[in-house]
Nucleic acid binder design. Structure first.
Length: 481
RNA sequence: GGCAACGUCGCCAAGCGGUAAGGCAGAGGUCUGCAAAAUCUCUAUCAGCGGUUCAAUUCCGCUCGUUGCCUCCA
């Protein structure tokens, strides 16, 4: 059994073999920090978080690098539009650097709530201007780029014969789509900017051998991934919409300089739509995570996202989210009941083996082979439900096998929390409130024993009134808040 | 206009050559003082039309529909 990933470069699934096992270098396109994170960010970073967790689980030492784009880029190479960060700074009447820092903090705050592990290295574009300049100089030395009299530096796409190998586009196709006027100083329309000369009023600009300016919009990923992971990355992840031109240009400018394979496995996740159409500020269906979290548990969102495969388009609707919330609630309750029964004595008994329980063994194999198959989380989750079904049956048995339950508990924790990153919570962290509820349950059960159902129902109804649901099982009363 | 992807039960969503996982919702049974929970059982031939094949949801073609990329975007 081995992990297979869909490699965009190969247009198919391939067994994952890192260059220098057990080390894995993984680079994922990070956010441009000019606004609060939205649903699309959640899908993206949850996807790579699970990949990261799974790679770690199967024994790899993963160095996970993610950039923070804090240089506001123009709309492409074409001198139109405005620097996004600068624009936001103008709107908020503050400094671009302050904007970048504010939204970077906001981003990590949202990711923390989604239980997305921090990358090993988070690097900012503005901290690597020197390296970018060096990279560009290298490309100029190799005649892969040229400087124009306006002070712009462009990559000469025709000098790199493999351009298009990721997206499958030819140069002709790439330029046919041009709908916006091409910058006048390019030799060929498909050439892209490595360095742009800055107007005086442009707030973020740096000195360079070609005058004051700022980096082009692809260069940071090539430069920072090289700095922290070397010339060849095992995995590069990002959104499908970035495969062309962003990733295509990254490959070109990296391979042209180093003459080495830039990326072994290019992983792209699909887009998220809202109510059937692309999420966009102008479309009025733009969902900011901070707003969503006011009414939705971040773990429900995480669960919802993982119920779809990362390479399929995912449509976000309230109805579907609610269905996931109900399903996740049931899963959590099952795990709670399990944890309540499995005592501390059994918690850490590693001697119990799934070899003794064929049904559990099969579930474990199914879960791992789902993950091995291009991180198929929807199937992994369905296997988790199977595991909880086995657990529930065992829990309601008169003659519980505590070893089996402990084993199930261990696997449930491994699958749900460690690999899928779904925080379930602990029954052990009892608050005063929980102790009080337990007290009421004891009182009520005394009433029930004495057939005083008027009182026992009153307790149950009153607790329900404040949102606490009691459930009488064969092994005692449980509750959910 | 060019290039892709997708269309599977009421809803969400896997599978992608050998006659359809799972979740939500729904129906019925068991358990229970009742309720809830849990559990058991039940509910689809895969947009349409052709073709390839012993065999197609799974491959090919066409049609219809939806979405995305080609311009910053996760």
């Amino acid at each position: 059994m081995a992990l297979k990933l869909y490699n965009t470069l190969a247009r198919g699934k391939q067994e994952f073999l890192p260059l220098n096992p057990p080390y894995v270098g993984m680079y994922v396109c990070g956010p441009t920090v000019y606004g609060h994170s939205h649903l699309g960010h959640a899908r993206s970073y949850i996807t790579y978080d699970v990949l990261y967790r799974y790679l770690s689980y199967i024994g790899y030492k993963v160095k996970y690098v993610q950039n923070i784009t804090d240089v506001g880029h123009l709309a492409g190479d074409r001198d139109v539009g405005e620097d996004k960060i600068q624009k936001q700074a103008r709107l908020e009447k503050t400094d671009p650097v302050e904007i970048a820092y504010k939204y970077e903090t906001s981003y990590f705050d949202d990711m923390d709530r989604l239980n997305v592990a921090r990358p090993s290295i988070s690097c900012r574009a503005t901290g690597h201007i020197m390296e970018m300049i060096e990279h560009i100089k290298g490309l100029l030395d190799k005649q892969k780029a040229y400087v124009t009299k306006e002070g712009n530096v462009y990559f000469n796409v025709r000098s790199y014969k493999e351009y298009g190998k990721l997206s499958g586009r030819t140069l002709e196709e790439a330029s046919e789509g041009e709908r916006i006027e091409v910058a006048k100083d390019k030799i060929n329309p498909e050439d892209f900017a490595l360095w742009k000369a800055a107007e005086k009023e442009h707030l973020m600009q740096w000195p360079s051998p070609w005058g004051m300016g700022y980096p082009g919009w692809h260069i940071e990923c090539s430069v920072m991934s090289n700095k922290y992971l070397g010339e060849t990355l095992d995995i590069h992840g990002g959104g499908l919409e970035n495969s062309f031109p962003h990733h295509e240009c990254e490959i070109a400018q990296s391979e042209a300089l180093y003459d080495k394979t830039f990326v072994r496995y290019f992983v792209h996740h699909n887009m998220l739509t809202v109510d059937g159409s692309k999420m966009g500020k102008s479309l009025g269906n733009f969902i900011i995570l901070k707003d969503l979290f006011k009414k939705t548990d971040p773990m429900v969102l995480r669960f919802y996202i993982l119920q779809g495969h990362y390479r399929s388009p995912l449509d976000f609707t309230d109805e579907a989210l609610n269905a996931s919330a109900a399903g996740f609630e049931r899963l959590k309750n099952s795990i709670f009941s399990l944890r309540k029964t499995v005592t501390d004595d059994f918690q850490n008994s590693d001697s119990i083996s799934e070899e003794d329980y064929p049904d559990i063994k099969r579930v474990k194999e199914d879960f791992l082979s789902a993950m091995d198959d291009d991180i198929n989380t929807p199937i992994a989750i369905s296997v988790l439900y199977e595991l909880m079904k086995i657990s529930n049956v065992e829990l309601s048995s008169d003659d519980k096998d505590m070893n089996k339950l402990a084993l199930i508990n261990r696997l449930a924790t491994l699958f749900a929390e460690e690999i899928l990153g779904l925080k379930i919570g602990s029954v052990r962290s009892q608050s005063k409130e929980d102790e009080l509820i337990e007290l009421f349950i004891e009182m009520r059960n005394d009433f029930r024993k004495n057939k005083n159902f008027a009182m026992s129902d009153k307790i149950r109804d009153d607790l329900k009134g404040i949102g606490i649901i009691l459930k009488d099982g064969s092994s005692g009363t449980t509750y959910s808040k």
